[in-house]
Simulated assay, not measured.
Amino acid sequence: MKEIKAYIRAHRTDPVIDALAEVPARPGIAVVALKEVGHRAGGNDIRTVDMVKLEIDVPDAQADAVVEIVLAAARTGAGHPGDGKVYVSDVTTAIDIATGRVL
């Protein structure tokens, strides 16, 4: 199982979620609103940017496809340095709280 964390611009949240709704066996998505601190291109001034962290857990076989969907749907136009990042990690253990069953 893989955990995909995507830090994206807040206004791209709905397009990403809509695109992920088309994935067979739709993955669950946790959405966490946050502010990131960034620099403007070519300058030293610091500003905050409204971002969202999406946490998506998927079977290994779906990970590459889900990452590609997130990248395509989160990108603004031709791409912008502040569009965000995607991280993929292995999940070694997952336990269902209701049943105690290891997933």
Rank of each mutant, 00 (worst) to 15 (best):
K2D: 09
K2C: 04
I4T: 04
I4W: 00
I4Y: 00
K5T: 06
I8W: 01
I8L: 02
I8G: 02
I8C: 05
R9N: 07
A10E: 15
R12F: 00
T13R: 11
D14T: 13
P15Q: 09
P15Y: 02
I17G: 03
D18E: 15
A19Q: 08
L20R: 12
L20K: 07
E22I: 09
E22S: 11
V23I: 15
P24T: 07
A25S: 12
P27H: 06
G28D: 15
G28A: 15
I29V: 15
I29K: 07
A30Q: 11
V31Y: 01
V31D: 02
E36Y: 00
V37K: 08
V37H: 12
G38Y: 01
G38H: 04
G38T: 14
H39N: 09
H39K: 13
R40Q: 11
A41E: 14
G42W: 09
G42L: 07
D45S: 13
D45G: 09
I46K: 11
I46N: 04
R47P: 00
R47N: 06
V49C: 02
V49F: 12
D50Q: 03
M51H: 08
M51P: 06
V52G: 03
V52H: 03
V52P: 00
E55A: 06
I56R: 01
I56E: 01
D57W: 01
D57F: 06
D57K: 06
V58L: 00
P59F: 06
D60P: 00
A63G: 07
D64L: 06
D64H: 06
D64Q: 13
A65Q: 11
E68V: 04
V70I: 14
V70A: 05
V70Y: 02
L71I: 05
L71G: 00
L71V: 07
A73Q: 08
A73R: 01
T76E: 15
A78V: 10
A78Y: 05
H80L: 15
H80N: 14
G84C: 13
K85A: 08
K85E: 08
V86G: 07
V86I: 15
V86P: 04
V86R: 08
V86Q: 09
V86A: 10
Y87S: 14
S89P: 04
D90Y: 00
T92C: 09
T92F: 09
T93R: 14
D96M: 03
I97W: 00
A98Y: 09
T99N: 01
T99S: 09
T99P: 04
V102A: 12
V102N: 10
V102D: 12
